[in-house]
Computed example of a mutant assay.
Amino acid sequence: MKLVATFAVLAIQASTYANPQVQPLRDSEIDYGCGCSFQVPRKLGPNGPVVLQWEQDGPANIRVDGKLHKLKVLALPAPKDQDRRQRVGDKEVFELFGDSVSARAECTVTRICEPEDESCEVTIYKAKLTVRTPGGTRVLDAWASCGC
């Protein structure tokens, strides 16, 4: 019986430490401008803490297990048919890679700018953010925005 209890404790400890912890970015780690930001939990929308962010053509910032990582955005959404506007429900995928951390953001458009609204330059998404490290994988439901 003691052997079974020992294995149960080890299994719980392994599951506790296997998944990477994704922490909010500090204000000094957020680049403000045109780009994308991901905030958790999804239900807080733009009021949630930013956990993944990048400026257009720049590296992405993510804090995992207490360390800031810079990720290269390698796969961006495929260009849309130029005759078709982006629509609510469209899917976009972002792939991001670094030395010891990678991430995949599977996004679904939830709000777009109306064509006549010249002041609107942002698309809103609900996203599934998967963060991988050598120690494990963490999946987060996020609210995201991309634009200027």
Rank of each mutant, 00 (worst) to 15 (best):
M1D: 13
L3P: 00
L3T: 08
V4Q: 13
T6R: 06
T6P: 00
F7K: 03
F7Y: 07
A8H: 01
L10E: 01
A11Y: 01
I12W: 03
Q13S: 14
A14M: 11
A14T: 09
T16C: 13
Y17F: 15
A18M: 14
N19V: 10
N19A: 15
P20N: 06
Q21A: 12
Q23K: 13
L25P: 03
R26P: 00
R26C: 05
S28T: 13
S28F: 05
I30A: 00
I30Y: 04
I30P: 01
D31G: 11
D31I: 11
D31Q: 11
Y32T: 05
G33T: 06
G35Y: 08
S37D: 15
Q39I: 00
V40K: 02
V40S: 01
R42T: 04
L44T: 08
P46L: 06
P46V: 10
N47W: 08
N47T: 09
G48C: 05
G48T: 02
G48H: 05
P49Q: 07
P49H: 04
W54G: 04
E55N: 14
E55T: 07
E55H: 02
D57L: 10
G58L: 04
A60W: 04
I62K: 05
R63E: 07
G66W: 02
K67G: 00
L68W: 10
H69Q: 06
K70C: 00
L71C: 07
L71E: 08
V73P: 03
V73L: 13
L76W: 10
L76I: 14
A78Y: 08
P79H: 06
K80N: 15
D81F: 09
Q82A: 14
Q82M: 12
D83W: 10
D83R: 15
R87G: 01
R87Y: 01
V88K: 12
V88P: 02
V88W: 05
K91Y: 02
K91E: 11
E92I: 06
V93H: 00
F94G: 00
F94C: 00
E95A: 09
L96N: 00
F97K: 14
F97I: 08
D99N: 13
V101F: 02
A103M: 04
A103S: 08
R104P: 00
A105S: 12
C107N: 15
T108D: 01
T108M: 10
V109A: 05
V109Y: 10
V109C: 07
T110D: 07
I112M: 06
E116Y: 04
E116R: 05
D117V: 06
C120G: 06
C120P: 04
E121V: 03
V122L: 03
T123M: 02
I124T: 13
K126A: 11
A127W: 05
A127R: 05
K128R: 15
T130S: 14
V131K: 07
P134T: 09
G135T: 15
G135H: 14
R138N: 12
V139T: 15
V139P: 09
L140M: 14
W143H: 11
A144N: 08
A144H: 10
S145G: 13
S145Q: 15
S145V: 12
C146Q: 11
C146A: 15
G147R: 06
